[in-house]
């Protein structure tokens, strides 16, 4: 082990590249993020509490976190179905649909926002038939939900897909030949093996939806207390020069993201420890 470490040190440039990496990381990422936390410390606990417990802030959090969670759940179910179809079945244009899954990653959020709004507006291709059924999507919380489903779907698919691909076929065959019905095999054998990946996908889709701005604000309607998401409230407070309010809301959202990163890291470690060496 020490021989390996010693040999690795024979390559030059560690001090220089590590120094540059840490400096650049600090300048672009760490100092700006630390500035946000420092700014929030300027607020008294009472001020902080008053901002966070105001009706408008609470409602923005409720809309953002509630709808993001609901959308992530839809992504979990639909994402699993898509992964299953892509990995296990052969159908026309399968590879094309596989590639299409990445569109929400690649499409700029503002473009997704105006496109979804045009699609679901009352005269839109999907909005018109839905309106005939009495369902209003654009400019309501349902619109936010739809946009969050759109941006979250690749997270579940791309996290679960490789795990299902690598799943050992013999476990399933064993379960089947020992008399388990197909449904039992899926619930008791396959689902538990996919568990960590499914949870990771759910967490990533949720994190992305909570912070999402561009694809949501066009379709949301942005009515305070009803369809106003937390990131938009930050922007509004900034434009009113209420920096303290913007900072307090941002710090709460940032802490939630950090908790999610931490949880996902733990999930990954758990998943790795469960997989027997193949």
């Amino acid at each position: 082990m020490s021989a390996i470490a010693a040999r690795r040190r024979t390559l030059p440039g560690f001090g220089l590249t590590m120094g540059l990496t840490l400096s650049w990381l600090s300048v672009i990422i760490l100092i700006p993020l630390a500035g946000l936390f420092l700014k929030s410390l300027e607020l008294s606990p009472e001020q902080f509490w008053n901002i966070l417990s105001s009706r408008r802030t609470l409602n923005a959090f409720r809309v953002s976190f509630g709808l993001a969670f609901a959308a992530a759940c839809v992504n979990l179910v639909m994402g699993s179905i898509i992964v299953w179809a892509l990995v296990r079945y052969r159908f026309p244009e399968r590879r094309l649909f596989d590639a299409i899954v990445d569109v929400p990653f690649a499409l700029p959020t503002a473009v997704a926002g105006v496109a979804l709004t045009a699609l679901f507006a009352e005269k839109g291709w999907l909005g018109a038939p839905l309106a005939a059924l009495g369902i209003k999507v654009a400019f309501t919380p349902v619109g936010i939900f739809v946009a969050m489903i759109f941006i979250g779907i690749p997270f579940v698919v791309r996290t679960v897909q490789p795990v299902l691909q690598d799943l050992d076929p013999e476990i399933e065959e064993a379960a089947g030949s020992l008399g388990a019905s197909r449904w039992q095999t899926i619930i008791r054998v396959i689902l538990p093996s996919l568990g960590p990946a499914l949870l990771t996908g759910l967490a990533l889709a949720f994190a992305r939806a909570v912070g999402e701005y561009g694809s949501v604000i066009f379709i949301a309607g942005n009515l305070p207390n009803v369809s106003e998401i937390a990131p938009l409230l930050i922007v509004i407070r900034l434009s009113e020069f209420r920096y303290a309010d913007a900072t307090a809301i941002a710090v709460v959202m940032l802490i939630v993201s950090f908790v999610i990163i931490f949880a996902v890291n733990r999930l990954q470690r758990w998943a790795q420890s469960r997989i027997p060496a193949r």
Binding site: G35, L36, L238
Partner: peptide, 27 residues
Amino acid sequence: TLIDLPFSVSPVISGLVFVLLFGAQGY
């Protein structure tokens, strides 16, 4: 993990941190 941080920060907050540093009331 630190290098990955920007992936999990809301875009709005990614802009806000620079307003807090370089804005009229910033550091």
